[in-house]
Design a protein around this nucleic acid. Structure first.
Lengths: 127, 127
DNA sequence: GCACATGGTCTAAAAAGCAGACCATGGGAT
DNA sequence: ATCCCATGGTCTGCTTTTTAGACCATGTGC
């Protein structure tokens, strides 16, 4: 399954699918983008405004990866100025479900985390 | 966002709990560590062997963050040579459930992702 | 004629991550 | 006695990643 056409790009068999998937969605921006796209289609700049503190380059790069892995589709309308729309694919939408569990957990336990942080800090200052 | 240098941390008001939690668990190593710790307590070097390609520095740093946020406990036994054990807290264990959903999804859809990648690459080569 | 908006890419600088050296110390092999 | 290893980290450069900001082509409103 390794493709030799580009010569440089050698893809290894990933023995651990979890690791492979985590490498993609476990970065700084992927989950945020997917979450932003959950309510519906968004354009590039709208996505950037939605997320707030992502650089153009990283947004562009991460979107490309998500498209590559089949989470989203990129549609270019050849108008002027150009319009580009990003939409979740069925695969992307199917990912929303486990992600929502994660988000629900985050919401439910955020207080506990903040408390743990405070406890930790207090313990540090005590010494 | 929070900047973290060893020993001194500046915590901003996080208006979005999801964002706050994602910043912690959404890095290269946290999920992997939590997964490795799921079966039971592990020592530092055992953890390093388990994960395989993490540097001591990042493992140490990430463990410190996880401890800080209450996901794990660090127990130092003052023997020689020193022994340090890392264990999931109840909070950490409660996180395992949504994480398992994620892992299950990854397992189930890994094939689709690989296929999407192949399709994307074929499309690129066509031009 | 001028600035603006679009969706990016390019570049230089800053930040994060890496491998490997180093630490103190006790135990086992030589 | 001496050498060497194992422990859990931290420190030091070097490499990779991310960032901010300039730049691009072009059609529209002023």
């Amino acid at each position: 399954m390794t493709t030799m056409s580009d010569g440089e790009e050698i893809v290894f068999e990933q023995p651990c699918p979890i690791r492979d998937v985590l490498d993609r969605i476990g970065d700084q921006w992927s989950l945020l983008i997917l979450e932003a796209l959950a309510p519906g289609t968004l354009r590039f700049n709208a996505l950037m405004r939605e997320i707030g503190d992502v650089s153009k380059q990283m947004l562009s790069r991460t979107l490309k990866q998500l498209e590559q892995d089949g989470f989203i589709t990129r549609t270019l309308y050849p108008e002027v100025p150009p319009r580009v729309e990003y939409t979740l694919t069925p695969l992307g939408r199917s990912f929303l479900e486990p992600m929502r569990q994660l988000v629900a957990w985050a919401d439910a336990h955020h207080g506990a985390i903040v408390a743990a942080r405070a406890r930790y800090q207090a313990r540090q200052e005590q010494t």
